[in-house]
């Protein structure tokens, strides 16, 4: 099975691991990730301003590319996923916005949000199936206590993201179970790490991030998994007592593809 895969800027630079393991795991599970030609950065955050189209065009181009190939669009970075899914939602529901975007792009065929956007986690749950993932596990992580960190971008706004219950999610916990480990549920897994505030006001990011890591460790977790490079940065930078890794790395370990040679 082939899907269009939007890696995003950070996965080419600071978050190469997130990308590499995602690709290896996908191959192992029978999914080929195909990058659209000439993709551009999604912009990192979705601008909620209804009158802005320029900041959303790169997302629409990627969505359109997937549509042309009749594929779903899969992302693994929480931020890219959030921006692209919200943009797609705006293309479906805001006729005025879609009109102006299509006008600008000037393509033969207008785009109205036809592409299905999935996060890599949703791909695992809804397309591959956690049962299949479980079957493919070669190194069970049994006994490992792992805390999922969702942050804000994966779940909210919940009426657009529609990935999981935004207050009591289970998708990463279910994945953790599928690879044999024990999920640790703690209350701040869906609270913000501070995000881009780290740049200007590191103290603010520190307050938020340490609340998350302390809570996870306090609930007995040995490890935190996340899908977002900025979350990982904030949690690590602000003194997490326990390691923070990308969920794809953990999955690669369980599927036995972590140690493969690069390239």
């Amino acid at each position: 099975m082939k899907v269009t895969y939007f890696p995003g800027c950070t996965l080419r630079t600071k978050a190469k691991d997130l990308d590499m393991y995602a690709r290896r795991c996908a191959e192992k599970l029978g999914v080929t990730l195909e990058e659209p030609k000439d993709w551009q950065c999604c912009g990192g955050v979705f601008t909620t301003a209804r009158d802005e189209i320029a900041t959303k065009l790169s997302s629409v181009r990627a969505l359109k590319a997937a549509k042309d190939k009749e594929q779903m669009l899969v992302t693994v970075c929480s931020a890219c996923h959030n921006v692209i899914k919200q943009t797609n939602h705006a293309m479906q529901t805001d006729a005025d916005f879609a009109f102006r975007v299509n006008n600008y792009l000037g393509e033969d065929e207008a785009y109205h949000g036809e592409t299905k956007v999935l996060h890599y986690l949703e791909l695992l749950r809804d397309v591959v199936g956690f049962d299949k993932v479980k079957e493919a596990v070669v190194n069970s992580l049994a006994g490992k206590k792992i805390a999922a960190y969702y942050g804000c971008l994966l779940l909210r706004p919940s009426n657009v993201m529609k990935m999981d219950d935004s207050e009591n999610p289970s998708i990463i916990e279910d994945l953790i179970r599928a690879i044999g480990a024990d999920p640790v549920v703690y209350p701040y897994r869906n609270e913000c790490c501070g995000g881009y505030i780290a740049l200007e006001n590191p103290e603010s990011a520190k307050a938020k991030s340490s609340k998350v890591t302390k809570s996870a460790a306090g609930h007995g977790a040995e490890l935190i998994v996340t899908a977002c490079p900025l979350c990982k940065y904030n949690l690590e930078k602000n003194g997490s007592e326990i390691p923070v890794v990308y969920f794809t790395e953990l999955l690669a370990e369980a599927l036995g593809v972590k140690e493969e040679d690069n390239e």
């Binding site: 995003g8 800027c9 950070t10 630079t13 600071k14 978050a15 950065c41 912009g43 990192g44 955050v45 601008t47 900041t55 970075c77 931020a79 995000g195 881009y196 780290a198 740049l199 200007e200 490079p229 900025l230 940065y233 690590e236 930078k237």
Partner: peptide, 19 residues
């Protein structure tokens, strides 16, 4: 002046978008 070497690109891009 605001950068450190671990900071992901995403943070800079996002901050520009917002600010």
């Amino acid at each position: 002046a605001l950068l450190d070497e671990d900071l992901p690109q995403q943070a800079i891009v996002s901050a520009f978008r917002k600010y």
